[in-house]
Amino acid sequence: MNIPPEDYNKYFEILELGYNAPLSEVRSSYLRLRALYSSDSIVTSAIIYEFPDDSKQAILDQIDEAYAKLREFFKDKEADHGYKERPSVAGSDIEEYLANVTAFSGPALKMIRERLVVELKDIANFTKIRRQYFEDIELERFEALPTEVYLRGYVVEYARYLSLDPARVAGDYMARYRTWKTTRGNRS
């Protein structure tokens, strides 16, 4: 496939990136913009009243399209030139995967995060929560994790960063935590 890269420039523009941005930046910009235009932040509500009701949806559609196109672009790039930025990322359809997730366990979260090309370091920097906690959350090393109230907060932050539904993720994850806690209580 020989698509001139210029065709993709407008998609990079929609995601507010330079034309040479790597897939990881495409991903994080997509997440950031999606979060911005799918919520009611002070930044958008200060201007939205002058625009038609569906203008936010129109922007979201554009962002989604740009992201889908760019994922194809990176997939082709990978196929054509043996180019590989990060393992097992491009081409994997995250929405499809998410639909099949029955419960957000630690390993499931890890899988989602890796598919989104997000590093634990990024989440830790952003949330100001120690990286180690997130690692323990993914590996379900419950004994190493702090008490329930704190843990729940960390899981919520983690989910939020990945643009997942925090309530659902925390609900699933904390249920697993409590199961572990009861079995441990029974054993001791």
Partner: peptide, 19 residues
Amino acid sequence: SSRDITVGTSIKSVCLKFL
């Protein structure tokens, strides 16, 4: 808060997309 920092990046995006 450090979260407020993103207000700036968001405004940048809104200025571009809406204006």
